[in-house]
């Protein structure tokens, strides 16, 4: 049995200036599952997921071709509300990037920009999001303190809480643990495990063990091409492609 398709990627190509970074990719991402994207540095993993919330629109000199459907609607068709897409498809970045504001204001930010004004609702949401992101216990007595005073791992969980507050449907994780220590990494992984009950999760990671531990599906990218896409179980135990096998066994990377 497989869950319904949440995001459908259809023949996409992406160019940075003249360099062709993503080559004719197509794949389905399933609802309420964790899909991991693995591959060596520079293979286009981050560029790929940044297409799902149109983050690459911000980068000058780039060109996108193809279609990406979210719940059957092409998010690249003209006239689509990009702001709404970004609200529905949240993102957690590689380096924790809390705003230089208080912990409370970091979480309430997304609510305010989305038009929620009621103080009571905001307060409730902030607490709820911090609890969901498993950071409430650590910060409940210092909500008015500056978020930059938190440790790297705490900052990253705060960023996850910030993302949860606007109630996205999909959460994109761009190597969320790349700059964190093993204990913080473990916390983030446990959290993702928990979040997949309610959200569709796409995670980029260069750490194969991490992909194996937390994902249900894994896609292997190499030099902008989709080499293999299968359930994590299959891909790690019986890879069909020779290249995937070589990568997993560490012959290149």
């Amino acid at each position: 049995m497989s869950n319904p398709v949440k995001i459908k990627v259809e023949n996409i190509n992406f160019y940075y200036g003249k360099s062709h970074t993503l080559k004719n990719l197509s794949m389905d991402i399933f609802d309420k599952q964790v899909t991991a994207i693995i591959g060596p540095s520079g293979c286009g993993k981050s560029t790929f997921i940044r297409l799902f919330n149109r983050m690459n629109d911000l980068i000058p000199n780039t060109r996108f071709e193809g279609k990406i459907y979210l719940d059957g609607k092409n998010i690249y068709s003209p006239g689509v509300d990009i702001v709404d897409i970004r609200r529905r498809v949240g993102m957690v970045f590689q380096n924790p990037n809390p705003f230089p504001k208080s912990i409370f204001d970091n979480i309430s930010y997304g609510l305010k920009v989305n038009g929620i004004k009621n103080r009571h609702t905001i307060e409730e949401k902030v607490v709820e999001s911090l609890k969901k992101a498993a950071i409430w216990e650590e910060v409940k007595d210092r909500l008015q303190e500056n978020a930059l005073g938190l440790s790297g791992g705490q900052q990253q969980r705060l960023c996850i809480a910030r993302c949860l507050a606007v109630e996205p449907e999909v959460i994109l994780f761009d190597e969320p643990a790349a700059s964190l220590d093993p204990i913080s990494t473990k916390k983030i992984e446990e959290l993702i495990e928990e979040l997949k009950k309610d959200y569709t999760i796409v995670i980029v990671t260069h750490n194969m063990q991490q992909a194996a531990r937390i994902s249900q599906y894994t896609v292997f990218l190499y030099l902008g091409k989709l080499i293999e896409y299968a359930t994590t179980n299959e891909l790690f135990t019986v890879p069909k492609n020779k290249m995937t096998e070589d990568y997993l066994t560490g012959k290149f990377g």
Partner: peptide, 14 residues
């Protein structure tokens, strides 16, 4: 930092 802009836009801010 560009990361502040990205963080804000990613939350659905205009």
């Amino acid at each position: 930092p560009q990361s502040y802009r990205e963080a804000s836009l990613a939350l659905g801010a205009t």
